[in-house]
Design a protein around this nucleic acid. Structure first.
Lengths: 228, 228
DNA sequence: GGAAAAAACTGACAATTGTCATGTTTTAGA
DNA sequence: TCTAAAACATGACAATTGTCAGTTTTTTCC
């Protein structure tokens, strides 16, 4: 089992503001878990006894709406710390976290986090910065959701996937989502998403091989996203 | 000019975690401002040199979407601290803050906030709790926006206004919003909002006298909000 | 490799929502 | 109090999006 002190992932999240002893404590109490695609890290309403630091793979953070549809609020990848918010506010989880592909995560019991928050202002401020950034992103999502058409949001989603997860060696988006997941990200019916994706293919904006999608005309997609 | 040490508003926000000296510093550097309905506290893209503590009145926090429509992300009332997020992340404001009715706010230069964040973990954690709570609310708004109909969201908006701002002595909602503002809260066209509000009146769910609105059938409104 | 299951896709249609045009009422200010 | 401006309201129609009912393709796993 690796030591947090040597973990490069830490540079991407708030744990980098911990000092040596604090980090040692985290390292001594953490446990590493491997999850297969589709497995649940935690569910809406679960009481969380710690946070999950994502070492590899991607998780979708989603919430079930009363009408039975899932809304994906965020995709979390390497470096993300899941469950942080719930641990801070001492509430049950507001979102579910489900593995989109195979994942490796470290579970860190909450005491190590909470105690450090209360004693090390650098760490508290660093966590604060991250959560504040998440809040800004969430506000932007609210605006997108309510002011853009489904077509625009799907175009944006592809651009988002490219800029955040990159492409594989063949130029396909490195993160492959099912049509249903894409629909749940942009908040529309699966059929609507499929229809628009087909249209994008016909227009030559993207190309697809099975579920793999590649951006074929970035500028064109951008124009659609901007409503041109 | 009042002293922060004696200000009851402080009990509602993160400033309650400040100690005597810190509070004294805030009190010595703060300035009080009075704003009329419609006045701008700060605008999207402004560089903020401090935060605004709301002593009275209500502000709408909104963002202009590329299509020229405003999306109201949040309504802030007594006790809210505006601009906190931007000061923490050292970014320009992501949202505009505009007075919905006459307001009184205290401007607190950012140094007093930032220095305390860096030195007093209690304060940092208290701010963290507030921002974390805001984040949860924002996530919930995302789900509502994307999974509920305009009718449901308008019904919810009235219930929200009642539970958060209360009623006046005649039973009307204490906070009166224009139809346009309501449309901008729920993310729809003004005409659509007007139509649905008219429908609610016909159904006896609400009654209206001019722009003042009263909830006439809470259970019925609730049913609409839940999609029954 | 083949069967079963899951995912992707398509068409037809209905419901919701947006837009534009216009009239009416309310509000604010001289 | 009167008037102009703003806000509210409504109709007609178009565009977007959702739903249902299927078919086809892809994936999974024995």
């Amino acid at each position: 089992m690796g030591r947090c002190e040597n973990c490069i992932i830490r540079q991407f999240n708030s744990l980098r503001a911990m000092n040596k002893e604090e980090l040692k404590r985290v390292s001594d109490t953490k446990t590493t878990k491997f999850l297969k695609k589709g497995e649940i890290i935690f569910g809406e309403g679960d009481k969380l006894n710690g946070v999950y630091c994502v070492k590899g793979g991607v998780s979708k953070l989603s919430k079930l709406s009363p009408n039975g549809k899932d809304q994906i609020v965020k995709l979390a990848t390497k470096g993300a710390v899941l469950g942080q918010r719930s641990v801070i506010t001492e509430e049950v989880a507001n979102l579910s976290a489900i593995a989109v592909n195979d994942m490796e995560v470290c579970f860190i019991p909450k005491d190590a986090i909470v105690d450090t928050l209360n004693s090390n202002p650098n760490f508290a401020v660093e966590v604060l910065r991250h959560i504040a950034h998440d809040l800004k992103e969430a506000d932007d999502v609210i605006v997108n959701m309510s002011q853009k058409t489904v077509k625009q949001r799907i175009a944006e989603a592809f651009i988002y996937l490219e800029t955040n997860f990159g492409e594989d060696q063949n130029g396909y988006l490195a993160l492959t989502l099912s049509r249903e997941d894409i629909a749940n990200v942009v908040g529309t019916a699966t059929e609507s998403a499929i229809r628009i994706i087909s249209e994008f293919k016909k227009l030559g904006l993207i190309k697809a091989s099975g579920k793999k999608v590649a951006i074929a005309n970035r500028q064109g997609l951008n124009d659609v996203a901007k409503g041109a």
